[in-house]
């Protein structure tokens, strides 16, 4: 479904991606882990055309989307839950969700169905529908960001650290929801610091370092790998007791 070959990306003179190769097949959950500054967020943003890749190919459903403007890329069926959630602070929860529908079918009936799905997934959003986005709690904002991304019924969902800063209970809920979304037919590329949860949920995983993919394998294989364990699991992010 998604295939990157030799993708480079720059922020001015800084080279953040240095030839990334990666593949996500239809129906998969693929996890991407890596240290701070490895280029994970840049990777997701580059897939969406911001920044535009300076070299390499990005095939989505067989068509090269590298170089297309962001709005055209996402209208092909890619949605992103970006780093930091990026909720519109001065819009209500409802308006944030309506914005999410902009890339998809914008008819009133599609919108109503989308809202229904969003509220079924996260009932708390229904209670807060008239509240301004900027006044939601961090966990509620994360839920809203995910719900907003799903409004356009994307075929590929890109998630950037959805568990960041959330209480363990909420983290568990978010990962559960990601699993549900995937079972409902959406392909998922998941960037996470929470390597344990991410690799357990994912079918396959990649490890990024300094703008390159340095390792790949099934979620279970990566979880068992001594290097991965040393770098991303035993350094403090141990599996929570009872998880």
């Amino acid at each position: 479904m998604l295939a990157l070959t030799g993708v480079h990306a720059h922020y001015g003179p800084i080279e953040a991606l240095r030839g990334v190769d990666l593949e996500v097949a239809h129906g998969e959950i693929v996890a991407m882990i890596g240290a701070n500054g490895a280029g994970k967020s840049t990777l997701l943003m580059t897939i969406c055309g911001a920044p535009v890749p300076s070299a390499g190919r990005i095939l989505f459903d067989g068509a090269d989307i590298a170089g297309l403007p962001t709005f055209e890329i996402v209208r092909r069926g890619i949605a992103q839950v970006p780093e930091g959630r990026r909720i519109f602070p001065r819009m209500t929860v409802l308006e944030n969700l309506q914005m999410g529908a902009a890339a998809g079918d914008a008819t009133p009936s599609a919108l109503a169905a989308g809202l229904e799905r969003a509220f079924a997934l996260f009932p708390v959003l229904a209670e807060r529908r008239t509240q301004r986005g900027g006044t939601l709690s961090g966990g509620e904002q994360q839920m809203l960001s995910i719900a907003r991304a799903l409004m356009a019924r994307p075929r590929l969902l890109l998630l950037d650290e959805p568990s960041l800063g959330l209480a363990p209970m909420v983290v568990k809920q978010i990962f559960q929801v990601i699993g549900e979304i995937n079972r409902a037919g959406t392909t998922v590329l998941l960037v996470e610091q929470n390597a344990y949860h991410a690799l357990r949920l994912a079918h396959r995983g990649y490890v990024m370092a300094q703008g390159r993919v340095v390792m790949s394998g099934s979620g279970a294989a990566l979880l068992a790998d001594p290097d991965v364990r040393a770098a991303y699991l035993e350094g403090g992010a141990k599996p929570p007791p009872g998880a």
Binding site: C48, A50, P69, T70, F71, V74, R75, A79, Q80, P82, R86, F88, P89, R90, M91, M99, G100, A102, A103, G104, R148, A152
Partner: peptide
């Protein structure tokens, strides 16, 4: 409020 996010949601 957030031009990049608007683009990510399909706004031209």
């Amino acid at each position: 409020q957030d031009r990049t996010m608007a683009a990510l949601l399909g706004v031209d």
